[in-house]
Each structure stands twice: as C-alpha cells, then as structure tokens.
Amino acid sequence: MTTRAGKRKKKRLYLVLTSMTVLVLAVGLVLTALQDSISLFVDPTELKERNFADGQRIRLGGLVAEESFSKDADGLTYHFDITDGAETVSVVYKGSLPDLFREGQGVVVEGSINQHGPFVATEVLAKHDENYMPKEVVDSLKKRGVFRHAEEEESI
C-alpha cells in the first residue's frame, strides 16, 4: 500500500481510530462523573455512609429481609426491612405491592429520608433476577431441599 490512494486510506483509518478513542474516553469520563445520578438506587450500606438530608427523596434497593414483613390492621400499610447483607433499613409503605413482592425478593423503593424512624416509601417496585425456571422443577428441587433463591446466594 504505497500508492497515494493507499496512503489516504491509511490516513482515514487513523482518523477514525483516534477520533473514536477520544470520543470513548470523553464519554467514559462523563459517565464516571455522573455515576451516582445514573445509578437508580442506593443500597442500605450507602444510605448509612452518605449523609442524606432529612426529607430528601431517594430510591433504596436491596432484598426484603426474611421474617420482617408485617401488615397493619388497616390491611394497607406494610412494614418490612430492606437488607444488603451488611446493613438493614426499616421501611413503612402504604399502597399496593407488586405481584413479585415477597421476603427474600429484590425490591426498589422510592421515598424520603426519615432520620427519626423508618424509611417512608411511596412506591415499591419488585426487581426480577436473571433466572427463569418452570414451577415443577422448583417444586422438585425444594422437595429435595436443594433449591435456593438466586438472590439469596448472591447476598451470602
């Protein structure tokens, strides 16, 4: 490739390579800088570490702690704990829960910081994991006592 056309091709190749590298670096820097605002939620550990102002609206994510779920007498107000394995936050929520909501399930709740009591959620979303299994398979696994919820495995 010593022809003039060949040289021009090489020049264009380098131009594409360098401009793409610069672009990727720039976008990478921007995304790193915006890390906190891109993430949808904070986990209980981050919640304790970072100082959020009282009343500030945030999303909190984690697993619904086992045996933490209870319902008030009105049948509409729910209490449960959200845990990431290390830290646990109590949540109170009034409204309807998604079908997938259960203890051990990943959830994302939106609400405001309350430094003197439980986190007051106004919206509860269930997080699905990446595993799909037929009901019969899960039943037989449970019968043999070897079934474990995938998210429980991760948090241990």
């Binding site: 949808l40 919206e123 509860v124 269930a126």
Partner: peptide, 12 residues
Amino acid sequence: KPTWGTYWIWDA
C-alpha cells in the same frame, strides 16, 4: 408492569 409494577423507569 406485571413484574416490576411499572411500565417505565428511567434506569440506565
């Protein structure tokens, strides 16, 4: 909607 409980969320 049936899984998470919302049609849309501004996640990444």
